[in-house]
Write a protein that binds this DNA or RNA. Sequence first.
DNA 1: GTTTAATGGGTAT
DNA 2: TACCCCTTAAACT
Length: 309
Amino acid sequence: MPEGHTLHRLALTLDRAFAGTRPRASSPQGRFVDGAALIDGRLLERAEAWGKHLFLVFEGDVILNIHLGLIGVLDVTGYEGVVPAPVGAVRLRLVGERHVADLRGATVVEIVTPEEMDATLARLGPDPLRAGTESNEPERALARMARTGRTFAETLMDQSVIAGVGNLYRCEVLFRHRVDPFRPAKEIRPATFLRIWDDLVDLLAIGVAFGQIITMEHQLEEAREILRGLDESASDAYRHHRLTLVDWQGRDEAEAGGRPAYERSGPFPREYAVYQRNGEACYTCGSRIRTRVVAGRNLFWCGRCQRRR
DNA sequence: GTTTAATGGGTAT
DNA sequence: TACCCCTTAAACT
């Protein structure tokens, strides 16, 4: 399920599975029949992610735009021999020589023009997974934050301020930096925000590599250790477009014998500092984790560790 | 068997 | 702020 790391991992996975080929497209569920017909057998040039938006660019300026929304899933799996039958409400299926991609539950599945794609991108704030590239600098987010009366927790969910961060990364990164979620965004010190940005660049990249959100320090240390073992230059290799993909057993996907790169869950058990821990004791100070709906989603935070200073 | 919640986001009120 | 869309699985009765 989808925050920015999911879409970037999918873009890389789809690129490896289908770019340069002409996958067959269909809509087993029947709700994307016309769109599927437009891309069926068409050459896929590349797959790209920006924030939580995914684009499959086919030849002839035909672009498939996918947004998974809250519950959408895009499964990419490998097969040999017979193509497996679709299970459930598969709105779009792509079939290649050795891979099948099944899309379910997405809020946006549509064919767009390059101009429409550009218009979508123009509405997005900087994406930490594209840090260091054109107009993806944190200063742009800071400028937006300085002009709003909203709380920091609200702006972290606003894709036009910062692209790719969702509710889980929001809760956890606020805790990691001991920031009061209800502090007005304009009062956050730039140095504090830049530290948070750098942390998000690291956290999201690790999320891409493992296909899961990892925010607990002991798990992060293990994750970084695995990445170092896979690639001596991992410290910058897992940034930008040279991200290492690790399968569910912690193996480098490329070295795992062509096994499917994308798995629904990674090798680490789900464990978070505050997310969905309402009423439980904070691991740091012991006080009870609290929750409240902020920007339409359940925010979780420690009222003591994240008290305004 | 039915209800609810889930890592989103758009539109109406 | 409310309600809508998308789908599935876990948590209820």
